[in-house]
Write a protein that binds this DNA or RNA. Structure first.
Length: 213
DNA sequence: CAGTCGATTCACT
DNA sequence: GTGAATCGACTGA
């Protein structure tokens, strides 16, 4: 249940800060996806920071391309990418504009619209797994490339909005190496999660794939 | 223009 | 714990 004070949209200034400041501050916030069937609301419990120009793990590390274009735009917009041939993951762009930094939304607790999320996440064995992992989160919310570039700060009838929610006190925020990131970029401790939260995804190191033939 | 591999998930052993 | 699924963005020739 979301109470009125927590329904306030996060202002753009919230995202117009260094990504390492924004990432932990997003924990406990509410992400709302509006669909024709109704809203789905998620409390964020796990995120990862990607800092464009300095970060070998970032999609923006090698410059602007058609795919990562949104990362180079204004803060507060949603960057959605397609990966492993079947999944989508979503990020929120941080400031300053043009730096191409963003926060990957990795997991959350479904607060509202669980019936809708379950229909999209048939393999989930319980509700804790509905949004436990970045692609699962996007799937549960019905987020795909059509939402790439959406302004999450727009107070109007946007399909996706970030609300104030209930920020997590910093003594309940843990951090560590990023999940699945190759090379030296992986060791940066820029993954943040809520301590002892059952919806946080398990850590996995980057797994290099065997060559075919 | 072909080769490589990914900010992952799921089914199985 | 291991491997398959699946496709398109990016790279380098």
């Amino acid at each position: 249940m979301i109470t009125p004070p927590d329904r306030t949209p996060l202002p753009r200034e919230f995202f117009d800060r260094p990504v390492l400041e924004v990432a932990p501050d997003l924990l406990g916030r509410t992400l709302v996806r509006t669909t024709p069937d109704g809203p789905i609301a998620v409390r964020l419990t796990e995120v990862e920071a990607y800092d464009g120009p300095n970060d070998p793990g970032s999609h923006a590390y090698r410059g602007r391309t058609a795919r990562n274009d949104v990362m180079f735009g204004p803060p507060g917009h949603v960057y959605v990418y397609f990966t492993y041939g079947m999944w989508f993951c979503m990020n929120l762009v941080c400031g300053p504009e043009g730096r191409a930094s963003a926060v990957l939304l990795r997991a959350g607790e479904v607060l509202e619209g669980a019936e809708l999320a379950r229909k999209r996440r048939l393999s989930a064995r319980n509700d804790k797994e509905l949004a436990k992992g970045p692609a699962r989160l996007a799937t549960a919310l019905g987020v795909d490339r059509a939402l790439d570039g959406t302004d999450a700060c727009d107070p109007g009838e946007t399909p996706l909005r970030m609300l104030t929610g209930t920020p997590v006190p910093s003594d309940q925020v843990l951090n560590g190496p990023r999940t699945g990131v190759a090379g030296e970029g992986g060791v940066r401790p820029w993954r943040y999660w809520v301590a002892n939260d059952p919806t946080v995804s398990p850590y996995r190191a980057h797994a290099p794939r065997r060559r075919s033939s």
